[in-house]
Design a protein around this nucleic acid. Structure first.
Lengths: 223, 223
DNA sequence: TAGATTGTTAATCGATTAACAATC
DNA sequence: TAGATTGTTAATCGATTAACAATC
């Protein structure tokens, strides 16, 4: 059914390629090789080549790939060239930060409004984007044909927010609450798991301290 | 050298177990089975059992694991019981949001200060935490024995921020900039890749639209 | 031509899942 | 005892890497 099924790993790596390619000086680098990309990002070159093969045209032996083309192909594959409207549920600190971050437009994400249960927030604006009561969610989503919902409410109300989004006809959810959401099969949930990242950091640090690889402070910098 | 090397995948799942366990009503659930956890989080039960075996005591057949004990063991394994001081480089929107999020303490992360190149921000406070000029970073890190640095600067200055952190004696870096950082071998970088999450969301959505699984809006809700 | 690079096929590696005996 | 659950060993699966012929 799906002719070129792409692995999740590959999908996760594409944005790094994109940002690397964009960081290259345009005039100097018409061609870029998989080996170059791999070295810059600390990856295996065959892996990069396979990833690129999923989304772009063939490279040319000895030269590599046309950088401009690669950028366009990755962007179009990831859907960054078409703007998707999204709403945020939870206009707290994190929600506010996301709401006011202009950079998401580069990724094809356009946050149009926020919703919050807190009546004192309703009616106010963050960066020109209005905060509405939860009761308005369904109507606004359907009228504006919003397909993406972002959850930035506390963990205990995340499932409720999720249910409301689903009921509003949302198709994909980006969840910042550290909770596993239960959704119908046809709804996509992308978990943004900061707690998990933090766990990796924290565990490595704990391990290093236990093994005396680092001191309790900066001793290794002294004598 | 490392007696019980734990897989990165396991490490990433531990926080979900923890948050699930904490969400259980204490009085009702003295014991919790791997099967229950697995079902709740949409995982395989053997996987949960193997993960738990890495960090906790044996479970009891027919009953499961003692919930309280599991919570303690995971927390201690992840180092959440010992508070680590951290600093943030970049006091913009995202940096400010992280700075003012109290919840990190639960994960053993204590953000003590922020640094920013913008002179107009220097001297101000966010949630009682001071913003310092970059020039003060090294001295403060060494004096307070800070081991974790968080990067929330724009992509183009992330490597510079990173170099400064390394020079300041930082041991682990949590990077929110969508850039691959070059660091010495002994420094741990944890990449928080929102662009990658967004890519997954965006690509699935683009695919679904192409396959006509969803309409251009809410038509499927009509007639 | 020689050499860097591509793309593909095969081998390796690691993680997940299945099967099953042991336990309470 | 019967049945739910554990922990372990073996099988499966998928992703990464190695090897190599093809290309410019």
């Amino acid at each position: 059914m799906n002719p070129k099924a792409i692995s999740k790993q590959t999908l996760l790596r594409l944005p790094s390629y994109l940002s690397y390619l964009k960081s290259l000086p345009k005039d100097e680098c018409e061609y870029v090789s998989a080996t170059t990309i791999a070295t810059a990002l600390g990856l295996n070159d065959v892996q990069v080549r396979k990833d690129l093969a999923c989304v772009s045209k063939k490279g040319r032996p000895k030269l590599g790939y046309v950088a401009e083309e690669l950028i366009r192909d990755i962007e179009s594959f990831l859907g960054y060239d078409a703007l998707n409207d999204a709403i945020i549920v939870g206009a707290g600190r994190l929600g506010g930060a996301l709401l006011s971050y202009e950079g998401f437009k580069e990724y094809g994400l356009n946050i149009v409004a926020a919703f919050d249960a807190d009546e004192s927030k309703v009616g106010t604006e963050i960066c020109g984007k209005k905060i509405f009561p939860l009761s308005k969610m369904k109507e606004l989503c359907q009228r504006m044909k919003v397909r993406i919902g972002i959850i930035t409410v506390p963990a205990h109300s995340a499932q409720k927010a999720c249910d409301m989004l689903v009921d509003s006809g949302i198709y994909a959810i980006w969840n910042f609450a550290p909770v596993h959401l239960k959704v119908p099969d046809n709804i996509l949930v992308q978990q943004e798991n900061m707690a998990a990242s933090l766990a990796v950091l924290s565990a490595h640090l704990a391990e290093a301290i236990k093994n005396n690889e680092i001191g309790k402070g900066d001793e290794e910098n002294d004598k």
